[in-house]
Nucleic acid binder design. Structure first.
Lengths: 192, 192
DNA sequence: GGCAACAGCCTAAACCCTTTAGGAAGCCGG
DNA sequence: CCGGCTTCCTAAAGGGTTTAGGCTGTTGCC
């Protein structure tokens, strides 16, 4: 018997690559077994089940993305940082659509807290140091930024902007301008 | 033989209801056959395949959502309209998470153009009549609004804001304030 | 070096979902 | 009233998931 040399790490990495090629949803234990030239049940020694495999790919993607973001943010502040973070997410999504889809998957709180999710929150919050927002408004702003980035990217990735002008790049830039303007000019709480 | 009285319409409606209960991804031809007390292959007389079924549920959800939005927008303008549209999407998503997930599914351009998708675009654009934006900036703004609404809703639905304060409602309101402020104060194109 | 234990891989098998083929029975129009 | 269409059925193949249990390299300890 030839020993294919499967390990959880190699499995997860291959799963991530496969996700980029054929889509995250199409990454199955069976497909992965084929990749490794191994029978399906063999993989169950390395991974608990299909769910477990997908969760690990999610964690890989989140970590990769956080690493990239940290690098992009180094030495930047204000709009510069905002743009850098947005571009990091967007570029990653276009380079690695499968991994990005994996990253967007929701995890149970336990797992999420142990992964790179919190790093992402902290980085977004760090950007807001360049703007003058109160504690509570910072949280609102973190949510706004996350929603807008991920909302835009998922629409763009889905091709929602493909067949209309202006092109997606132009809108992205202008939306960054807009977000920056909004953060510099955050409206006061309305006193009803 | 008792004739269960299956029709494509009843199938799609039951599929939509099932989606709200068990999640859109769990809506399968098999599950639906069980609901109707009918053998699985019987449904293939009414629906081409699983894909077709899901597409029809998507179209149903899009149409329902457009109807609600049209009603909510009647007689409103400016921030009032913006909030009404956002709340419509958000409320629908919370009432009908399965249908909302279905609505977010991408369709091929043919099918999309024939469905209620274009109505949604027109309604978002209509809201911008209350703001002073040029043609091109209107498009950017449509994309911003869509991204932010859907981004926020999907994060909220996924429970991303569950265990932190301030609550999701508060952030939503403040983000509406922010979007309104931004649209009233849309930054000029930067001339590099 | 020898061998026990373990790790990595396998076959067998059950279960679920999808989809096609082909048949029987209800219903409807001429 | 009966031929044909529609609705539903059984049979069967194909693919994914998962568990049980077996065989065999490999490792590490005496």
């Amino acid at each position: 018997m030839v020993r294919a040399g499967v390990t959880p790490e190699r499995l997860v990495l291959a799963g991530a690559e496969l996700a980029d090629e054929i889509g995250f949803d199409a990454v199955t234990v069976s497909a992965l077994a084929r990749q490794f030239g191994v029978k399906v049940p063999s993989l169950y020694s390395h991974v608990r089940n299909s769910q477990d495999l997908k969760t690990r790919i999610t964690l890989l993607a989140l970590a990769e993305l956080a690493d990239r973001a940290a690098e992009a943010l180094a030495g930047r502040a204000g709009k510069d940082a905002l743009t850098a973070l947005g571009d990091t997410y967007r570029d990653y999504a276009r380079e690695h659509p499968g991994r990005y889809a994996a990253a967007r998957r929701r995890l149970d709180p336990q797992t999420a807290a142990a992964g790179a999710g919190p790093r992402h929150s902290r980085m977004t919050r760090a950007i807001l140091r360049g703007y003058d927002l109160g504690e509570t408004d910072q949280t609102h702003a973190v949510r706004l930024i996350g929603s807008t980035f991920h909302g835009y990217i998922s629409l763009e990735l889905a091709g929602a902007f493909d067949h209309s002008s202006p092109d997606a790049q132009r809108s992205w830039t202008r939306i960054m301008d807009g977000l920056d303007a909004l953060l510099r000019n955050w409206p006061a709480e309305e006193t009803a």
